[in-house]
Simulated scan of single mutants.
Amino acid sequence: MRFDERKYKIQEEAKLLVPPPRSEAVTAIARVFAALADRRAACLAALPETPPVVELDFDPALFEEGTPLLSSFDPACFLEDFTAAAGCLFPGMAELFPAVAGEISALADAISGNPAVADACLAALWTEGEEAGAVWEKVGALSGVSAAVAAFAAGEALKVCLTRMAPLLAPQVQKESWFRGYCPICGSYPDAGCLLPKEPEESEYLISKSGQLHMHCARCGHVWRYVRLKCPACETTDHEKFASLIANDRDDERVYTCSECGIFFPCVDLTGGRQDIRLENVALDLMHLEFVAAERGFRPLVVQAWNTFA
């Protein structure tokens, strides 16, 4: 354990380690999913010219209590965008993931040929917990595609839709009343955090000499401020339980771990001016550290196709 008072002026403990070399397998996985992120971005241009109208029944009191903006919206409003995103994205996904190419292509055909499949996908994507499994089974019955592949492919298509909507909804986020560990727009947890240079403000609760913590939503890509040294899942502030794994040679890259609830999530320090990072790829860039966290018994804050280690 280490507490580097020269760099951190608040309490923060970091466990030093030397991670295993970035293997060819890890590099290959990261390359494929980085290419998928590129294809999602390219598919934004394929969406209908006019974004869907999202009617929000915004209640400032509920928002302050932790209710995201899209908590009560009808996912069917994304039907046109979702269908267009799937038509653009799925052929590229079939190329990137040849082992399930047939199922991805079958899902693309089902969505374009049967609106009920797209409706079922959207309903499943907005259903939480164990109930989602039954809805994905319905998608599978309609499309002839396994529930796991349908969930993966449809989830990537929805990211395209939400990535367009997030900047349009961001001005409605009341930043001064949202310091939660999940996204104020769609309610998803972050896939990564980043430390940015501090801005002048009154509250020392949010900042330290080493910068402000921002979270990147795994689903819609929205970035919001969060409290330093606080677990986004269980909200513990015990620095002995919420710590970080750091490589000896890269102290600007870390994976935060929480021994209270068992999660981990990656974070990159950009206070030094580093500009070679895309926020949507931070977790991919730090996959070698995530392996170390997983080997120590921690689980990812956001489960994705590539971070559920066997």
Rank of each mutant, 00 (worst) to 15 (best):
residue 235 E to W: 00
residue 128 E to H: 11
residue 46 A to C: 07
residue 191 D to K: 11
residue 61 A to G: 00
residue 48 P to N: 02
residue 278 R to E: 14
residue 290 E to L: 03
residue 187 G to L: 02
residue 78 F to N: 09
residue 259 S to N: 04
residue 244 S to C: 04
residue 306 W to K: 05
residue 232 P to N: 03
residue 253 E to R: 04
residue 26 V to F: 05
residue 78 F to I: 05
residue 151 A to P: 00
residue 133 G to H: 13
residue 10 I to E: 08
residue 7 K to H: 13
residue 211 G to L: 00
residue 289 L to G: 10
residue 178 W to L: 07
residue 219 R to H: 09
residue 297 G to N: 00
residue 124 A to P: 11
residue 185 I to K: 08
residue 183 C to V: 00
residue 216 H to S: 05
residue 120 A to T: 11
residue 242 F to N: 09
residue 267 C to P: 01
residue 219 R to L: 14
residue 175 K to E: 15
residue 205 Y to E: 12
residue 146 S to E: 11
residue 80 E to T: 12
residue 131 E to S: 14
residue 253 E to Y: 05
residue 131 E to Y: 08
residue 40 R to K: 15
residue 301 L to N: 05
residue 308 T to F: 10
residue 95 E to S: 12
residue 107 L to F: 13
residue 134 A to S: 14
residue 258 C to F: 05
residue 64 E to A: 15
residue 41 A to G: 07
residue 87 G to V: 05
residue 262 G to Y: 06
residue 249 D to M: 01
residue 56 L to S: 04
residue 266 P to R: 02
residue 45 A to I: 00
residue 19 P to D: 04
residue 180 R to T: 02
residue 232 P to Q: 03
residue 114 N to V: 03
residue 246 I to L: 07
residue 93 M to N: 04
residue 244 S to F: 03
residue 5 E to P: 10
residue 235 E to Q: 14
residue 256 Y to D: 12
residue 271 T to L: 01
residue 288 H to M: 05
residue 6 R to A: 08
residue 267 C to K: 00
residue 85 A to V: 06
residue 15 K to E: 15
residue 62 L to V: 01
residue 169 L to V: 03
residue 252 D to R: 03
residue 160 V to P: 13
residue 220 C to W: 07
residue 303 V to N: 10
residue 94 A to P: 14
residue 85 A to M: 08
residue 111 I to P: 10
residue 169 L to F: 06
residue 47 L to M: 06
residue 189 Y to H: 11
residue 217 C to G: 11
residue 268 V to N: 12
residue 21 P to D: 09
residue 14 A to T: 12
residue 195 L to Y: 15
residue 301 L to H: 02
residue 149 V to E: 11
residue 45 A to M: 06
residue 61 A to I: 01
residue 202 E to I: 01
residue 150 A to S: 15
residue 176 E to S: 13
residue 124 A to I: 06
residue 125 L to Q: 14
residue 99 A to T: 13
residue 254 R to K: 15
residue 113 G to N: 09
residue 216 H to P: 05
residue 131 E to Q: 15
residue 78 F to T: 07
residue 64 E to S: 13
